[in-house]
Design a protein around this nucleic acid. Structure first.
Lengths: 203, 203
DNA sequence: ACAGCCATGTAAGTCGTTACATGATTGC
DNA sequence: GCAATCATGTAACGACTTACATGGCTGT
């Protein structure tokens, strides 16, 4: 049930349309919780039905309407309740590590290809997060600036610090994945060398 | 689609019942891919229907039957295909980090409680994985021994090495999470001290 | 007799993915 | 006029969760 709370949290910065929210899910929140627009629009309707957000409709052209959502006082209360709640950790589901457990079913070339993919992906992630940390530290994101503009100044440090801490954590996590992939490549080299030695000895 | 492949991989060690497989999902595979028995039994039926596993039924009592599944040659081929396939990384979904982004909506006491929970959980995980690494290195798990018993000796190094590498990676990952939680606790201390100073200055 | 483990399932519901589908506005 | 972006949805399907439900075997 994290989607609804991610939406509520985003709406504390400013009222937004489903489209705006979907974009935010691509550039910031999505780094920790992904959601496509096909999930966002129905969820906003549900949030509206339960009174956690309110919607203002404005006409666009002759047939279409634009719906701008704002968080309600009940929505804020729900957000506080969620933050205070201790959630049991989600069950592990890590396709990359599962597959790596069984690389022996493929070739050395394949293991290398897989580790290289892992390496490249997490290097990109690391960079993305590093940039995000730098932006947060300079208050250089639209959403953060809007959020700070409406909150009392003495709370700004905490608001920024928690976010910076999260994204620094993700930078570190990506660094560990990159290291793991590099060590994986070294492992494949060792295994292949041993295999080659065995073959020439056996001949 | 990882569940089916995890099941196939487990069956390369020895034929097993759904119950056996469910237990394995609790003690080893589940560390990387969790699945409850209510998902395993229907999936085995599907695998059987597509010819990737075969089942042998033996009667138990008057009404019940036990079904023991074995991997087929097609199943092994599918496993090789899966290992060789480069899969796009799953979209991020990290409830703990999402919530931490918004700890400012709760109290300092809450942030502390959350970080402490994170710390305790990943410490347990780290220990569990360390133990698993040690067991793998000593070939001290039933499944691994059975797997090695039926594979040619020159492949043993690779079979063990990939698994050890995976679980060492998970130990490292858990270590980073523990560190992140500790730094989170230090952050809360700093934020609270600043808040206290501000209040006494304001009085 | 009872507990604990062995063993296999179903059912209802939610969450998430992928694809389909449509229309409006802005700037070139 | 056209492309890009703004904007909002639905539908079908598959993955996963939680709860319910049943029966057998082994040892005390």
């Amino acid at each position: 049930m994290s989607l609804r709370h991610a939406l509520l949290a985003l709406l504390t910065a400013r009222p937004m349309t489903g489209y705006d929210l979907a974009k935010q899910f691509d550039v910031s929140v999505a780094y920790v919780w992904h959601a496509p627009h096909s999930q966002i629009y129905p969820e906003l309707r549900k949030l509206e039905a339960s009174g956690l957000v309110s919607a203002e409709s404005t006409p666009r052209g002759s047939q279409a309407t634009k719906r701008t959502y704002s968080i309600t006082e009940e929505g804020r209360a729900e957000l506080r309740r969620w933050v205070e709640e201790v959630a049991p950790p989600l069950p592990e589901r890590d396709a990359a590590h599962l597959k790596a457990t069984y690389y022996e079913f493929g070739s050395f070339a394949n293991a290398r290809r897989q580790f290289e993919g892992h390496l490249a992906y997490h290097q990109r992630q690391q960079l993305k997060w590093q940039i995000h940390v730098a932006q947060l530290e300079k208050h250089d994101t639209d959403l953060l600036r809007r959020r700070l503009a409406i909150e009392p100044e003495h709370t700004h440090d905490a608001i920024v610090a928690y976010k910076v801490h999260v994204y620094r954590g993700l930078v570190e996590r990506a660094r560990v994945e990159v290291e793991w992939a590099r060590e994986g490549l070294a492992l494949v080299d060792r295994l292949e060398a041993a295999e080659t030695a065995r073959r020439s000895a056996g001949d």
